[in-house]
Structures are given as structure tokens and as C-alpha cells.
Design a protein around this nucleic acid. Structure first.
Lengths: 103, 103
DNA sequence: AATACACTTGAATAATTGTTAAAACGTTCT
DNA sequence: AGAACGTTTTAACAATTATTCAAGTGTATT
């Protein structure tokens, strides 16, 4: 019956949705790709490297949201804050989507 | 230089973001999982099978959006409309996320 | 042709996200 | 202590997305 697994399943779907929602933004995806290549980057480096204009405040917002949702971790070193990917398995999502042919 | 690959890259990031945005919703993910198991389902069957209350109009909106974005295809058979997944490689996204450990 | 059924559409509203700019915070350097 | 730098936070506003409900379409049944 539906009721038995309802709560577990709905919760999982909500968690997956939350993760996808968090990264479903061009700049956030760009950040993930850059961190995929460079392991750990400061806020201002990311700002320079990202493929679109992004003010430092906006970058900080993006990073904070991804950190809040467990996708990134950060470490402070002097004046800079370095961000990196919490679980690099997430990067497979790019292959996964690149393998799909839509319209 | 940034400028050379800017347009290609930004476009790709936007496409990926669009796909993720389209499916980043618990009911839409549920629909995808059900269509992963059953290949093709009518709107009202999906409504009954989905793990949360979803009126038929809402279901139709969900399906239309996913179809508009190339994620689903549909086929009419008499009074019913059957939906299925355009490219089942997309289903790998579930494994991809299940393999990640976020707090 | 009238009814019922399966689904879609549209419009109105609620809810969530994205963006911007200014102020605040903590660290280093002088 | 004061200035400069890198980052975060806040609050206000714009933009997008989700939800609901009523009306509309097309197909079958009588």
C-alpha cells in the first residue's frame, strides 16, 4: 500500500529535489565545474573565473546557499575563505546530463 | 581567454540548469521514477500512483512542463494520453545523487 | 446530438528565488 | 589605533515558479 512507504519515499524525493534546486542555476553549475577542476578556490578567484559577470556579493550568496545545503564546505585562511565540494560524486551529474539527448 | 569559449560554455550551463530546474520538484521526480519503472503511463494513473496528493490538473501542468523541456514525450490513445521519458539516461541522476553523502 | 470521460488551458494568486546595494565583520598591515 | 582587504549579512525589490479553480477541447458512448 501507498501508506507504508509514503513518508520515507516522499522525504527522499524532497531531499533530492532540494539538492537539484540548489544547483539548478548557471552560475552555481559553473562554480561546481571550477571546483571540480581546482579542488578549492577563494570567493574572489571564483568571481574572476566564472563565465559570467558576478559581483562578489552575489558570489557569496551563491556559495552560502550551496554550503547551507551541504553541497560545499568552506575553510577560512587569513582574509580569504576557500570553498570546495563536499562530495565530488556530485560532479557525475554533468556526465549524466551530457549523455542525454533532449529535443 | 575567457571570451573565446564564453558563449558556448554559458549556453551549456544554462541548458543544464534548465533541465535540473525542470525536474527539481518532489512530484516531478516521483513521476520520473514511476515512468522509469513502467515505461509509459496515463495522466490519471500517474495521479493515483504518485506518493502525494496531486489533482489531475496539477499533474497535467507538471507533465506539460516536463514535455515542453524535452524531458518527456506523450502519445494519445483514445481519451487517454500516455507519457514516457524521452531519454532514459536521465534516470541515472538518481543513482548519482544517491551515491553522494550530504550531511 | 447529448452526456460522460480524460485531459489541457488560462488566469489569478500565493510562494519562492534571484538580484542589488549598502552596511557590517573579521583579519592583516602600517 | 586606523586603513585596507576579503567576505558576509541584511533588507528591499524584481522576477520566476507553484498552486488552484473554472472553463475549454477532443474522444468515445448512448
Amino acid at each position: 500500500m501507498k501508506n507504508t512507504k509514503k513518508n520515507i519515499s516522499v522525504r527522499r524525493l524532497e531531499q533530492v529535489a532540494k539538492i537539484l534546486k540548489t544547483i539548478a542555476h548557471p552560475v552555481k553549475l559553473d562554480i561546481l565545474e571550477l571546483l571540480g577542476e581546482h579542488n578549492s578556490l577563494s570567493v574572489s578567484s571564483l568571481c574572476e573565473m566564472v563565465d559570467s559577470d558576478c559581483e562578489i556579493s552575489m558570489m557569496s550568496h551563491h556559495l552560502a546557499k550551496m554550503k547551507d545545503n551541504g553541497i560545499l564546505v568552506s575553510e577560512k585562511d587569513g582574509k580569504q575563505v576557500y570553498y570546495s565540494i563536499a562530495d565530488r560524486n556530485l560532479l557525475k551529474i554533468f556526465n549524466c546530463i551530457d549523455n542525454c539527448n533532449f529535443d
